[in-house]
Amino acid sequence: MSILPAPPLRHVTDLTVTLDPIRHMNQGRAGVRRIIPIIGGSAKGPAINGRILNVGADWQTQFASGLTELDTRYAIETDDGATIEIKNYGYRHGPADVLDALVRGEDVRPDAYYMRTHARLETGDTRYDWVNHTLFVGNGARLNGLVQMSLFAID
């Protein structure tokens, strides 16, 4: 039994992140390394709407266990002209056959594997100052050429 209640989550935005082809780095110190350039996309939701800029990437490490560590940095230009940086860190894992299907670019149900992140957002635009002192969690899905991510503020 917890002495404190679980913090509520508030839906902020749904991201559709467009990706360039994977840049394979092969085996690194900790695992198989990949860089996946982030080249665009959209943000649509109750608190943040705009387009994802062509300025980021996901630096991934895949471990022998099948766990993939996700480490992304990219930015949104909101519909009203603010720029918001996103630093998103998380894990993707699941059954080997499901992960192999993802690598082949096949459609896989998002509930067939685990893809969760925690995110920090930052901006100098006072209209969105609240993102500078809010933590976020994300629920994601990898599709062929894109990632879908729903971000929730931890209130």
Rank of each mutant, 00 (worst) to 15 (best):
M115N: 04
G90V: 12
A75R: 11
K87A: 14
G45L: 05
D107N: 11
H118A: 11
G90M: 06
K44A: 13
L4F: 13
F136C: 13
P5G: 00
A112P: 00
I154N: 10
T13R: 03
Y113T: 03
P7L: 06
H11I: 06
G40L: 05
M115T: 00
A64Q: 13
A57C: 09
L146D: 09
T68E: 00
P95R: 15
T68Y: 00
P8L: 06
A153V: 09
A141H: 12
G81F: 00
G94M: 06
H118V: 13
V137E: 05
G41A: 11
I48L: 15
M149Q: 14
R29P: 13
L70A: 12
A101V: 03
M1K: 12
R142Q: 06
G41P: 11
R142V: 10
G145S: 05
L121A: 07
E77Y: 01
Q148W: 07
G138V: 03
I84R: 01
Q27V: 13
Y114V: 14
S2N: 14
T18F: 10
D107W: 06
R92H: 02
G50Q: 04
S150N: 13
W59G: 00
T78W: 05
P21L: 02
Y74H: 12
I48S: 10
R127V: 03
K87M: 11
L143T: 01
G140L: 10
Q148S: 13
I35Q: 12
P46R: 12
M149P: 02
T123Q: 09
N49I: 05
N49D: 15
L99H: 03
M149H: 05
Q62C: 03
I84D: 00
H133V: 13
R33N: 08
R73C: 10
G50L: 03
V103R: 14
R116N: 10
M25F: 12
T134E: 03
L4T: 11
R10M: 11
G145D: 01
R73D: 06
G41C: 12
